[in-house]
Amino acid sequence: MKHDEMIGKVQALARLRDRGSAERTTHAVLSTLSERLPSGLALHVAAQLPPDLATVVRQAVDGTADPGVGASGERFGLTVFAGRIADRAGTDEDTALRDAAAVLEVLDAALAPELTERMAGALPADIRELLPVERAIGND
Rank of each mutant, 00 (worst) to 15 (best):
M1S: 08
D4N: 09
E5C: 07
I7D: 11
I7F: 12
V10E: 10
Q11F: 15
A14L: 10
R15E: 15
R17E: 14
G20R: 12
E23G: 06
T25H: 11
T26P: 10
V29C: 09
V29I: 06
L30M: 07
S31D: 13
S34H: 01
P38C: 02
G40C: 02
L41C: 07
L43W: 01
L43R: 03
H44I: 00
A46W: 04
Q48L: 00
L49P: 00
V56M: 15
R58Y: 01
V61W: 01
V61T: 04
G63K: 00
G68E: 13
V69W: 08
G70Q: 03
F76K: 01
G77D: 00
T79D: 03
F81A: 00
F81K: 03
R84W: 10
D87C: 12
G90T: 09
T95H: 14
L97H: 02
R98S: 10
R98W: 08
V103L: 07
L104P: 07
L104G: 07
L107V: 03
L107E: 02
A110L: 01
E114N: 06
R118S: 07
R118Y: 03
A120Q: 08
G121R: 13
A122Q: 11
L123C: 06
L123D: 05
D126P: 02
I127M: 07
I127V: 14
E129P: 00
L130T: 02
L131V: 05
A136C: 13
A136P: 10
G138N: 07
